[in-house]
Design a protein around this nucleic acid. Sequence first.
DNA 1: GCGACAG
DNA 2: ATCTTGTCGC
Length: 223
Amino acid sequence: MKPSFEHVWNLTEQEAIQLQTHLAKKVISSDEFLTIDYVAGVDVAYSKYNNTLIAGIVILDMRSLDVTESVVVEDDASFPYIPGLFSFRELPPVAKAFSQIKTVPQLVVCDGQGVAHPRRFGLACHLGVLYDIPTIGCGKTRLCGEYIEPSPERGSSSPLIDQTEIIGNVLRTQTNVKPIFVSVGHKISLPTANQIVLQLATKYRLPETTRQADQLVNARLKR
DNA sequence: GCGACAG
DNA sequence: ATCTTGTCGC
């Protein structure tokens, strides 16, 4: 699987912010897909001992949620972790992993925010626009926006609001468990994203895609 | 200036 | 994210 276009990655902080502002205009927040046969999960872990990033991608059969394909790659970390510029650190190794994927998914569930981002261009948006594929941003913690705590039962949610704008959903995937932050990545609407994440997180707090990718990456990390 | 800040 | 002990809340 290859990106629909390329851009340089060795940018300064200011250049990265400018690029985000530019690319944010390309984000589409309406449903632009038909059926989802395969859904991808992405996760990245950092190994502090050799300063590398380990990126894992799993392809799940959307109906059975069985793992159809998976790949793990390791790459040097070349960009620092800066809140708001997450994708410039994590996407290079993720792109390297995607280049080895044979099964093209119809949707990618990302570990990180989509438009729930200061410039409305989180990791999920960046990946979606680069590959021209529907993506969902799914974060464990908040980057920006305000919300009221959703009701404790599974399926309840409340809007994540920045200024006057709804930028995502705070979704309770398991009763009495901390909610997760769902936002539009690319070519999907917020209600659809919310529904799919809930469907993928039937057993655990995080969607099965993220869980499988996390498991894959950690198996490589701990050796 | 201070606090907040995806992974 | 990773590293880690005791501590707090339900």
